[in-house]
Computed example of a mutant assay.
Amino acid sequence: MHTTQLAGLLLIAGLLCACGADKPGAATAGSDGRAAAPAAAPSGDASAEDVAATARGDVDCPVDAAPNAPGTPVDDIVGVRPGMSYEQAANAVMCSGPLLVIKPENSRGFEINTFGQTVRQGFSARFAEPRVNKSGRQIMQEMERDAMARGMNAVRQDMQPGQSKWFVATMGMPGQEKAISVAREQWFEQDRNPTVDSVEQALLEKYGASTERNDQGDTHQLRWAYDPRGRLITETSPLFNRCRGAADPDSGVSLSADCGLVVAANVVPLRGNPALAQYLQVGVVDQAGGYQALTDTQQGLQAMDAERRAQQVRDAGKNAQAPQL
């Protein structure tokens, strides 16, 4: 059973941890690294296509993604990979589906001292939904249905067949943020579900021999883990149980300077036929690169604030009011 969880990113090795709610200095919207001004709420009914067209703006497709260097691990999900700039990653995500709309995430991010600066720490993407004006009675009826479903512990999926969603975590100095992890969930179209075996085979063909294959309940899990030098981690490595990723876009990831690239995949079968796949989750994280980006960003922000305070002292030497004694 797939349920939505709102989880912050987690940082291991005792440096930093993620926050799960808006806090001073948390990532906010705005392509230039500043908080975006609130936009006027649109009104009137609109199709999903119209909603997407308005929200997406200019999208440059297809994405001109450079191939992986020979001998290096495959690190992309549909062309989106760690190391892309915030803008490049957002554009590439929208190129993966004409109805996908980007939403900057303010409630998921690392709990770092930004010294008053705005650091964009990631964005999500989902399919646009039709905008329908509803009467008060319709709204009340929906609330009653939701309350009844919760009371009966009914499973409420947040995805429909044929849809996908993303989460991309980013880090860097304001305006220079880059992706450090990418995760995507794809629900297969109704009556066009592939077999679980064919999905696993497609994953192995793209990412190569896996570090681990494991079944958790009905979910089939695969993992490709590498050390910082790009060497595949095997069962005999001391890093085997340490270097893990997160396939679910709603889950957090861990970062460690001892781990390199980690790709994780979950293949979830159809309830009525476990031989067929209902949806696929794939996540990739550059653990060592992300850890370094966090460290560099924190140090850069601290240095920027130290220079600000030093400049205030210099200005005070010229313009400060003398005390009356």
Rank of each mutant, 00 (worst) to 15 (best):
Q278H: 15
D258C: 04
M143V: 12
M152T: 08
A35T: 14
G162V: 07
Q292E: 10
R150M: 14
P161T: 06
Q292N: 12
P194R: 04
V119R: 03
R309Y: 09
F188Q: 01
S237E: 07
Q88G: 06
R308T: 08
A128E: 01
G44C: 02
V285F: 05
Q311G: 13
T219P: 02
G136Q: 09
D22E: 13
E200F: 03
Q201S: 15
G230S: 06
V78K: 12
V74T: 14
D215F: 05
T54M: 13
A40V: 15
E189P: 01
R137M: 12
S85I: 00
A202E: 05
G151D: 04
N273Q: 03
T3A: 10
T211N: 00
L10S: 14
M148L: 15
V262T: 07
K23L: 12
V196H: 00
A275V: 09
G25L: 04
V284W: 03
G97E: 01
R231W: 05
R213H: 15
V199P: 01
L11Y: 08
A65R: 09
A147E: 12
L301Y: 03
A35D: 15
Q176H: 12
I233M: 01
L270I: 00
F110Q: 01
L232A: 08
V93I: 06
P82W: 03
R145D: 12
A36C: 13
A169M: 04
V182I: 06
S164H: 11
L10P: 12
V74A: 12
Q287S: 10
G44F: 06
V119L: 08
D60Y: 11
E144A: 15
N113S: 10
D197P: 06
A69M: 08
T72R: 10
P269K: 02
K23G: 12
